[in-house]
């Protein structure tokens, strides 16, 4: 794990104390020396150091009145967040702790509450999707619902879903028009939607140099936004152009923020990290349909558990002519297209 430590050139947050003029002691209490005599890892050390620094800052702020207690609390949360581990290797207690920190931080910053779930994959579930290209009319209600559900950046107009207008009789996605804006459905065309296909053999996760993206047991490929370094290798590796990068700080109007969130899903991202469709992990792990499937007015989107032999998606796989995109790559997408 030591190889994955963040670069430690950064100083502890300055809380306005330590100048000596306010009467607070800026010397570290003796407990640090005691702890340093024992064998501690770098991470433990900085964790301890951080909490002590934050503690001193809190005392200083309450004593000096220069900074509010809330600012000190936020600094403490920031510090602990900075030295937390990769979500993949966190225990359930650590997951809960980081989620509670993030919720509290949001509250301190915005004055509103969000609910961030750390719900694990449901055993016995492997999510799959089927898209009926005979039914889709190109209305793009799914795209709109996805943007709102997943707190996507409104300023850059980020969208996880692309709908391609295709000439009837063709199957070359490269010839499809993903930029159409006219009355739909247009005569002589059909519509084909793409998003992350949650590949069972995903190339994107293999190229990540820091282990910030992986496939969950229920088949959803996720990103730890707090571990991603923004190198965009995964974006290059995805043969379906399914990953998105935050070139700027994502902006979502305060009153449009979806407060039902998941750590691996639609919680607010930051500048410089990757994100992608998670089949609405914050909804689907509660048994709900993804926002795109719920919004579709034509019933072209079918979502369900591939491990349930009685599910709708299994019926489609067994009874309809299905295909996937770029099957020859061996990526094994869990997203099938079919026709009536």
């Amino acid at each position: 794990m030591s190889a994955r430590l963040p670069i430690l050139g950064q100083e502890a947050p300055n809380h306005g104390c330590g100048s000596g003029t306010c009467g607070c002691s800026s010397e570290a209490p003796p407990v640090v020396e005691e702890r340093l005599d024992t064998d501690v890892s770098r991470r433990q050390f900085f964790g301890l150091f951080g909490s002590l620094t934050a503690g001193v800052a809190a005392v200083a702020s309450s004593g000096c009145g220069t900074k509010s207690a809330e600012a000190a609390e936020k600094a403490s949360l920031d510090w602990e967040e900075y030295f937390k581990g990769n979500y993949q290797v966190m225990t359930d207690e650590e997951k809960r702790a980081t989620v509670e920190r993030l919720e509290r931080r949001w509250e301190l910053e915005h004055g509103s509450r969000v609910e961030i779930s750390d719900q694990n994959a449901v055993p016995g579930v492997l999510y799959g999707y089927a898209f009926n290209i005979s039914k889709c009319q190109g209305y793009m209600d799914c795209v709109d619902a996805c943007v709102k559900e997943n707190n996507l950046d409104r300023e850059s107009g980020m969208q996880y879903i692309r709908i391609f207008e295709m000439d009837e009789g063709t199957m070359q996605l490269g010839d499809g028009d993903g930029r159409f804006y006219h009355e739909v459905p247009a005569a002589g065309h059909f519509y084909l939607g793409t998003q992350c296909f949650q590949c069972d053999n995903p190339p994107c996760t293999k190229v990540c140099p820091v282990g910030a993206t992986w496939k969950e047991p229920d088949g959803i490929v996720v990103v730890d936004y707090d571990w991603c370094i923004g190198c965009r290798y995964c974006q290059a590796a995805c043969p379906y152009w399914a990953r998105r990068f935050n070139w700027q700080e994502p902006f979502v109007p305060e009153d449009e923020v979806n407060q039902e969130q998941h750590y691996l899903g639609n919680r607010l991202r930051k500048k410089g990290v990757m994100e992608k469709c998670t089949y609405c992990i914050q909804r689907t792990r509660k048994g709900r349909n993804p926002a795109c499937a719920e919004a579709c007015p034509t019933g072209a989107r079918i979502f369900g558990n591939l491990l349930d032999p009685d599910s709708e998606i299994r019926w489609v796989l067994a009874n309809k002519k299905v295909f996937r995109l770029k099957e020859d790559l061996g990526t094994e997408p869990k997203f099938w297209y079919f026709m009536d």
């Binding site: 793009m140 795209v143 980020m158 969208q159 993903g178 930029r179 804006y181 009355e183 739909v184």
Partner: peptide, 16 residues
């Protein structure tokens, strides 16, 4: 189903 304008659009589309 009726013919109508899409609910939203690709950000780089003509409509945008």
């Amino acid at each position: 189903f009726e013919t109508r304008l899409p609910t939203t659009m690709y950000p780089g589309s003509e409509g945008a």
